[in-house]
Design a protein around this nucleic acid. Structure first.
Lengths: 206, 206
DNA sequence: CCTACGATGGACCGCACAGTCCATTCCCAG
DNA sequence: CTGGGAATGGACTGTGCGGTCCATCGTAGG
């Protein structure tokens, strides 16, 4: 479809995706129209269909990819460097702050519900996001193991999975109720559990 | 609006809500139309607007209420009687099974995104559901305290909140990926944490 | 057995919005 | 500088679908 894109074309395409993402956040996926996106991005119908020949769904998919990347990016550099308890705490703060600021908007969730399980690409994006996210958490736990702050026989994947679930649940409740208390509690408790394992190491190791 | 409903009328209204719920689950909220609901429930346009004068939004709201009640109901009688570790385990199994069976459908989540934050009633339904859910968990924890299986100084609300977040996160990931592993891990770990607190009591209490 | 009102049927309307088409302009390669 | 494809503008179309309206039927209550 888009094999030939000049520099200008690439810029326009990017402008459309980013503008569409903004519109979807503001208006909500359900009520955002192509006209809204055109107005926001100063483009015409033909441009939209030029860069996304398959129409709205293809555009939404591109926005979903954009938002998924954003999720990971917004947690950097902390998420990629969880090699001390201080780093974990900083990361926690970033996550809480990011989602408190985002408030009750969930662009990715909305997009997922809109595009639906029908499209194969949609699920792949979320699955990949979850995989990357959990893998980063697992890497952080392993880093602590390597530093001797956590026991070597810890079930890393289970811990990472539970942490990811804690975050998702907290965010989910934040979206529903507007209160971030659950996100904080869930994250705090998850990290506290980890530290407790570390304390065991400290006691054993002297 | 609906002050006067004969027995027949009430039956029809209920049939519409239940049928609409089924259609929304199958087709997805985004692509389900009033015509679909009419076909499924063997009703006419005028009936839909007779029982839901404000139109589709009002109907969706009614379905949301229905689904929210369903969520709690599906966990009974276990959720209302979490007074032993065995009861907690049984409840866990019911939750996992229920959501595994539901698969990647999330009627309530979809409805929430569709109706949106604009409507005040929508959020209230979810907030109330979360409140009831967490309160039941808290009651279960208090029952264990009363039975001497958990320490009296446990932060009941924080535990209940974290458990609720664990469930929500697990379900959320199940919806996204189709895998229930996170839900299982999160629930198991949450309950295991609780039991660990109980073990402390046992050691102290003899 | 009426009669008033609720329950039902279904034709009809209007519009919002995705998607099409062609004309025009821009810009790089040769 | 020139030809051609990419980029853009914008009018136009088709229709799906929510919502309105009125006519008819069923029935509970007197």
């Amino acid at each position: 479809m888009v094999g030939k894109l000049t520099a200008k074309g690439r810029a326009t395409r990017a402008r459309i995706v980013e503008g569409a993402a903004a519109v979807l956040r503001e208006r909500g996926v359900a009520s955002a129209t192509l006209d809204d996106i055109m107005a926001r991005t100063r483009t015409s119908k033909s441009q939209l269909f030029h860069y996304f020949p398959a129409g709205k769904d293809e555009l939404l998919l591109a926005v979903a990819r954009f938002e998924a990347d954003q999720v990971i990016e917004d947690q950097q550099p902390h998420l990629g460097r969880l090699d001390s308890w201080e780093a974990w705490e900083r990361w926690r703060d970033v996550v809480v702050e990011r989602y408190e600021q985002q408030g009750d908007e969930c662009p990715l969730g909305s997009l997922f519900f809109q595009i639906g399980r029908s499209t194969p690409g949609a699920r792949a994006i979320v699955v990949e996001l979850m995989r990357r996210w959990q893998e980063s958490l697992a890497a952080g736990i392993r880093a602590l193991q390597a530093a001797g702050r956590l026991p070597a026989d810890l079930d890393v994947d289970a811990r990472a999975a539970a942490l990811l679930a804690a975050i998702q649940g907290g965010v989910s409740i934040l979206l529903s109720t507007g209160r971030s208390a659950h996100l904080r509690v869930a994250l705090d408790q998850g990290i506290a559990d980890l530290r407790r394992e570390g304390d065991a190491v400290d006691r054993r190791g002297g």
